[in-house]
Amino acid sequence: MTLEELKEKMDEAHYVYDETLATVLYVALALGRPLLIEGAAGVGKTEVAKVMAAALDRDLVRLQCYEGLDESKALYEWNYQKQLLAIQISREAGSEAQTRQLFSDEYLLERPLLRSIRSEKPVVLLIDEIDKADEEFEAFLLELLSEMQVTIPEIGTVKARSIPLVVLTSNRARPLSEALRRRCAYLYIDYPSLDKELAILRGKLPHVDDRLCVQVATAVQKLRSSQTILKKPSIAETLDWAAALEALGIRELTPDVLVKTGGFLLKNNEDLAALARQEPDGHCGRCGQ
C-alpha cells in the first residue's frame, strides 16, 4: 500500500488527519512496527486504531490496560474448571474414557493478545493506556512486539499466523521503558489546530450550524491557550459541547451561554471558576471571527 492509497482509505473512513499523522501511520505499517501514540487525554489516540481498523478492513482487538493486568487476562488462561471436570470423568469412566490432552487448544482460553496473533486474518491490536499497566507487563509485551510471537510454557512458542498492526496508547502517566519505546514507531498527538478542529466538528456533526461550529472551535482554542485553565478541553469534549449546544437550540455563542454550558468542556471546579472570572468576551468564539 502506498501513502496515497492509505490517505484515500482514511478519507473513506471520514477521518480528519494531517500530513504528519498520515506519514507516521504509513511508516509504521510499512515497517511492520508497533505504533506508540502519546498525547494528552482526549486528543484522539484510541481513535487512530479504530480508524486504521476501518480503513484496512480489519477487526479491532482491544486490550484495556489497568494496574495489576497480567498475562492470564491479556494473553491466555487454562480453563481450569473444564480440565478438572475432564480429569474427574476420566477417573470415573476408567480406561474406557478417552483422556483428552489437558493442555491443548480445547482447554485454552484466548485473551486479546493471543487472539490477535492466532487470527487467520490480520487484525488491528489496540493496547490502550499502556502507562496504566505495571512495568512487569511492559516487559512481558517485549517478545510479542519484537518477534510477533509468545511463549506458553505448556505449549511452546506460538508464532503469529498473521501480523497484526499493533497500536499502543499512553497518557504519559508514567514513563515507559526504553526497551518498549525502542521497539515502536512513535507518534505524539497534540491538541488540534483551529482548522483541524473545525474540520473534525464539520465531519462528525454535519447537522450543526457552521457558524456555531466556528464559534465553538474558536472558543475551545482560546480556552486551551489560557494559562488559568489547567485541564485543557479535549476534542471529545468539544464535540460533546457542540452537540449539547445544538440540542439546546442555541445558535449564537454568547459569554453567558459559555459560562452556563462550560461543564461540558471543563471538568473541574477550579477551571469553571476561572472561566466565570474571565472578562465577558474573554473566551467567547465570536471575538475570534
Binding site: 507516521v24 526504553e178 519505546r181 507518534l187
Partner: peptide
Amino acid sequence: TALCTVYAKSREEQ
C-alpha cells in the same frame, strides 16, 4: 516526519 518516527521515541527526543 518519517525519520522522526523511526529515530525519536518520546516528545523530548522529537
